[in-house]
Structure formats: structure tokens, C-alpha cells
Design a binder for these strands. Structure first.
Length: 445
RNA sequence: GGCCCCGUGGUGUAACGGUUAGCACUCGAGGUUUUCAACCUCGCAGCACGGGUUCGACUCCCGUCGGGGCUACCA
């Protein structure tokens, strides 16, 4: 995590989705970084240049006798291991050492791992972790076709690009000694390491697509805010000493310390993310709120986006103003305010529950009262309707819910007085009138 | 099987060799209220287990159990 004051975090993208092409992986990651509002620069070396370094480094190790060609195939090794450390074999197992040295078609390159000593990983989170060299295979660093393998490429890239810190998932902890061995053979200095606990789904298994919100992209589609996601993510595996949970990103950067990150894997809890997101939604400035909504609609619902865009600036701002306290995610906003921008479809359930024949009278009188309101504002609308409530001796819900259903089509919406005010006198009266008419019709049946 | 990591309520976490083990989400009960949320109050619920070390362990050590990762000519 980059600290303030121009500190810079150097990331090397190494965890990629193998089902996709390199280009797709890269653009997906850059997309995610952009949405999370994180800046980035390109690395100092191109893909091509790195490939050259791989070749050079490989040759150097070969020349120095620190790596050697081996004609044993993956199947050979598997068979060997099964014979020597399968079930029933109780002796100490040893790392595989290639037997056949020598050129030949189909020879892969293995790194020569020392038989003695240990490779020690200094992890900023987990401390010192020791791995015995004799248990480590002489692992393959290049395929027989000359292409290099992950553990070798990762180490060479880190060395060439002078990576200072490697911060990655726990699942790479066992790869680290192998990479360290490559650094040692190369005579390069290794970066610092920090292995973060993994994130698991609600079932306790490694987080995957089937868990819903598995990627940053999905979080965006679900209507979460970048700042909320940053906050929530920081809280997984880490907590403040004074129990603060909701923090702006500045504060997060200020307080976060990698060495205070926990070691146990965490389970992704969307409910808490929702709660944090709700906090950020409510604290957002109106202008920002509208921008988010516009961007979200453009991406997910073009028809709604154009309905929204067609309204006046004032109306858009007012609409955002009356939902801001209600929506937990950006996705929830539009359903709550669409009635302001387009004719809402009537929700049969709400209609059935609320629009009893007996409400026809009061609803009609509410229409009359509203028609007589001089200044169409939240305050005067409320005053007028409360007066009607008194004279009719009705409980608030008895009248306000029917009005809500009449103008929004549903039983859930922002505050009713505000809703009427923003909708406007003309549309409000028309929808109330239509509802009264419809009630009269069904009454006659 | 081998190597490695991890284990505080349902979830995320805090603290400490000596506290009634704190906070947040969820859940439950009230309150507020024009709906739903939000908000306020109260509540349920935890140191995986067993041995040590110690005057005293959630905390340190060992073991067990449980979860995870690696064990590829994948990344």
C-alpha cells in the first residue's frame, strides 16, 4: 500500500485468469484500477524486453551450471513421486533431483536446488518461515520448447524491474522459496514479501465466481461505491485499534500498516459491505451522487439513462436529494425515483393491499385539496394534507399510502410530501385522478 | 502422503500474562415514523479441544482436531 508523500506502489500483474487472453486480463485489471480510482503507470520494461531477460538469465544459469537440462517428463516425475512418497511410504521424502543430464530433444531446464540448508522467507505479516532445501524439487524453470515457467519468470521480472515489495495472496507463500532460490542463483536481491490472507466465500471455500460478488467488476455492477469498497476491503484482515470502522480513503492510507494485517483468511460478507456502502451513499455530495447514478444507468439501463437525462437539471438534483437517505447502493436508486421521470407501472400487490374501495373518497378529496394548494412545495403540501387528515379523522397511513401508490405505483418510495413536490402539481393530480377513476371502475364490478 | 500457513460470537475484527473479553455487521425486542430504509435504546451470541509453563493464561510452548495453500514442462 502506497503511503502518502509520493510513495509509489509497484505492482506486477501475475494472478491472471487463464481462460482469457493476456490483453483481456490486462484491460480487465486496468479497468478495475480505474474504477477504484487508483493511478498507475506502465512498467519500465515491455513484454518483449522481459522475454529477452528471461532468455539471458536462463542461459546464464545454464552456463554457470546452476541449472541443467533434464529429459524426465512430467509423467516420469509423477510416477517417481508416487513410488516414493505415495500412501504407505513413511520415510522422509526428498525433493526430486533430475537424473539425466544432457542435451536432447524434449529436455526441460531444471534449477539446481542445494541439498543442504534452508531457504528463509521474511514475511512482513507472518514473520520468518523456513523451508528445507532438501525437500524442494529441482523444479522446472523452462519448458522443453524454451518458454519459461512462472516461478522463474516472476523472479527475473522482479529483479529486472527492481520490485521493492511483493504483496500477494497467501496461496503464493509456498512459491516464495522457489522464487528466492532463483534470486540466489541469479545473484540478485530479493524484494520484501507480504502474504495477505485469502478471501473466502460464505461457504468457507476460496472465493469464486459462484459466490456472486467475486470481482471488482461485479461489485461495480451491483452498485457499490469505490470508496466503500476500499474501506470494506481494508477491514478484511485488518482493524483499527480504536474500533473505527468507517473511514475515508485518506484516513485509511494514513492508518493502514501492512504489518498489522491479520493472518487468518476472511469470509466475504456482502451485508457489511452494503452497510458501509449505505454510509458512503448518504454522505456523498449531491453532485457526486448524480454523477454516479448517471454513469451507472448508462452502463446498466440505457432506457432509464435517457429518461433521467431528459429531465431538467433541477428535477434531477431534487430527485437525488429525496432518495439520498434511502438507497444503500447505486442500483437501488432508480427504482425508487423512476416514477418522477416516467409513468410508473402499477404494482398489483401494492394496489391490492392498499387500494381498498373505501379509500376512493379520501383520495378524491386529497386531490381537491392539493389542487387548491397555492405554492407547490413540500411544506405546504404537508400542511394541506395534514389538515385533511384532521378533518377526515383519518390515521396518516390511511391516506398517505393510497396517495403513494397512486403516484408511484408502489408502496415503497421516498417521503410522500417530497415525492409530490418533486413530481409536480400537474402529474400528481393526474395520477391521483386516474387512481380514483380506477377505484370507481372496480367498485362498479 | 509430504511441506507450509491459519484457528476470538453467525460474519469482520480489537485488546491483554491479571478486563464483567471491547467494537461493527447480521439477528431479536422496543422506540421514532407517511411506506421502506435510515436513526435511537436494549438484547442474544465468542477465546476449537487437551496438556503443560506460570501465582495467574484467550494471550507463551507442545499435541490433537478443524480449515486453507503448495506439492505441474499452470499462474
Amino acid at each position: 500500500m502506497a503511503r502518502g508523500g509520493g510513495g509509489k506502489l509497484v505492482l506486477r500483474i501475475e494472478d491472471t485468469d487463464r481462460e482469457r487472453s493476456t490483453e483481456e486480463n490486462v484491460s480487465q485489471i486496468l479497468d478495475a484500477l480505474a474504477w477504484l480510482e487508483l493511478d498507475w503507470d506502465e512498467g519500465p520494461l515491455s513484454q518483449h524486453e522481459l522475454a529477452d531477460r528471461h532468455r539471458d538469465s536462463l542461459q546464464r544459469l545454464l552456463d554457470a551450471g546452476l541449472a541443467y537440462p533434464d529429459t524426465a517428463t512430467a509423467d516420469d516425475v509423477r510416477a517417481y513421486k508416487e513410488a516414493h512418497q505415495g500412501a504407505g511410504y513413511r520415510g522422509p521424502s526428498e525433493g526430486v533431483r533430475g537424473g539425466v543430464e544432457g542435451e536432447g530433444a524434449g529436455a526441460a531446464i531444471r534449477l539446481r536446488v542445494p541439498d543442504q540448508g534452508e531457504t528463509v522467507v521474511e514475511d512482513q505479516i507472518r514473520g520468518e518461515i523456513r523451508f528445507e532445501n532438501r525437500l524442494q524439487d529441482d523444479f522446472v524453470i523452462a519448458r522443453s520448447d524454451g518458454s519459461v515457467l512462472y516461478n522463474f519468470a516472476a523472479a527475473v521480472d522482479d529483479a529486472e524491474m527492481e520490485i521493492s515489495d511483493v504483496i500477494r495472496g497467501d496461496d503464493h507463500l509456498s512459491n516464495t522459496p522457489r522464487q528466492l532460490l532463483v534470486f540466489a542463483a541469479l545473484g540478485s536481491e530479493a524484494p520484501r514479501y507480504a502474504h495477505l490472507p485469502l478471501l473466502h466465500g460464505p461457504d468457507g471455500k476460496k472465493l469464486s465466481k459462484r459466490h456472486g460478488a467475486a470481482s471488482v467488476q461485479e461489485l461495480r455492477e451491483l452498485g457499490y461505491l469505490p470508496a466503500a469498497v476500499r474501506n470494506y476491503l481494508a477491514l478484511l484482515g485488518w482493524g483499527t485499534q480504536d474500533d473505527t470502522t468507517v473511514m475515508a480513503t485518506d484516513e485509511l492510507v494514513e492508518r493502514f500498516a501492512i504489518e498489522r494485517v491479520g493472518r487468518a483468511s476472511a469470509i466475504f460478507d456482502e451485508q457489511k459491505l452494503r452497510w458501509i456502502n449505505g454510509r458512503f451513499m448518504r454522505e456523498q455530495g449531491l453532485g457526486h451522487y448524480e454523477e454516479r447514478l448517471t454513469a451507472h444507468l448508462a452502463r446498466t439501463d440505457p432506457a432509464a439513462a435517457s429518461d433521467f437525462a431528459a429531465a431538467t437539471e433541477t428535477k434531477r438534483a431534487e430527485a437525488c436529494g429525496i432518495v439520498r437517505e434511502k438507497a444503500q447502493t447505486v442500483t437501488e436508486v432508480w427504482p425508487l425515483i423512476r416514477f418522477l421521470f416516467t409513468e410508473p407501472p402499477a404494482d398489483p400487490k401494492a394496489w391490492q393491499r392498499v387500494m381498498k374501495p373505501s379509500v376512493a373518497g379520501p383520495l378524491a378529496r386529497a386531490g381537491e385539496v392539493l389542487a387548491g394548494v397555492e405554492l407547490w412545495s413540500t411544506e405546504s403540501i404537508e400542511a394541506a394534507l395534514r389538515a385533511l387528515l384532521d378533518s377526515e379523522d383519518l390515521k396518516a397511513g390511511k391516506l398517505l399510502q393510497p396517495i403513494r401508490v397512486a403516484i408511484t405505483g408502489t408502496s415503497v418510495s421516498p417521503g410522500i410530501f417530497e415525492s409530490l413536490a418533486v413530481l409536480g402539481r400537474e402529474d400528481s393530480l393526474r395520477r391521483i385522478g386516474a387512481a380514483v377513476a380506477r377505484l370507481a371502475e372496480s367498485d362498479g364490478e
